[in-house]
Amino acid sequence: MSRAVQNLRAARGRDIAARALAAVPLNYAVTSALTMLIARLLPGDAAQASIAATTLSFAIFAGIAMTAFAVRSALRLWIGLVAAGLVAGTADWLLIAVGGRL
């Protein structure tokens, strides 16, 4: 086996590992931050908003997991997920700080 083929296989392995890490643990963190944000923004009482947001979170998690293996660049995937997580986390923190419902 040539050196180029070995390098290509190693690069593919790193790409798959980066996508798998984005598809599960990073996805879980982003989905939980988005779920908290959605639960705070939905109208109605806290219990109904929480149930609706949790139900929606399954679709969000599945969509992000599928996207993790569909996008062309793992780097752009990570940048997008980290940015979405930071925005959702910051919005959650701000809503709590100004007196939003817990």
Rank of each mutant, 00 (worst) to 15 (best):
L37T: 05
L77Y: 05
V5C: 12
A4K: 06
I64V: 13
G89K: 00
A59E: 00
L37R: 11
L75V: 12
V98T: 15
N7T: 14
R3Q: 15
L34F: 03
D92A: 06
I16D: 12
A68Q: 06
M1G: 15
T67I: 06
A4N: 07
G99H: 08
W93V: 02
A46D: 15
A17W: 02
W93F: 07
A68W: 10
D15Y: 06
D92R: 01
A10D: 11
T35A: 12
Q48R: 08
G85V: 02
V82C: 04
A91I: 09
L41T: 10
L42T: 09
L56V: 02
T54C: 08
V98S: 14
A47Q: 14
L34Q: 14
G89L: 04
V98K: 06
L95E: 09
A29F: 11
Q48F: 05
L75I: 08
W78Q: 03
A65H: 10
W78K: 03
G13H: 13
L21M: 14
L56W: 01
S32K: 11
T31W: 05
V98H: 07
T54A: 15
A84W: 04
L94K: 01
G63N: 04
I64S: 01
A97V: 11
R40M: 15
L42C: 07
I38A: 15
A49H: 07
L94T: 12
R101C: 04
L95H: 09
A11I: 10
A97H: 10
I64R: 06
G85L: 03
M66D: 01
A83H: 02
P25Q: 05
L37Q: 08
I51P: 10
A62P: 02
A20G: 06
L94D: 05
A53R: 02
D45T: 06
L75S: 11
L77K: 02
L81N: 00
D92C: 09
I96A: 13
T35S: 12
W78I: 06
I60A: 07
W93E: 02
T35W: 04
L34C: 08
V71A: 04
I96Q: 09
R3I: 15
L56R: 00
L41K: 12
S2C: 07
L95S: 13
N27M: 06
A88H: 05
A10Y: 03
A33N: 09
G44S: 01
A68H: 04
L34H: 03
A4I: 14
V71G: 03
A83E: 00
T55M: 15
M1Y: 11
V24C: 00
A23L: 08
A33G: 00
R19I: 11
W78N: 03
I51F: 14
I38D: 03
G89P: 05
N27E: 07
L34S: 07
M36E: 08
A22M: 06
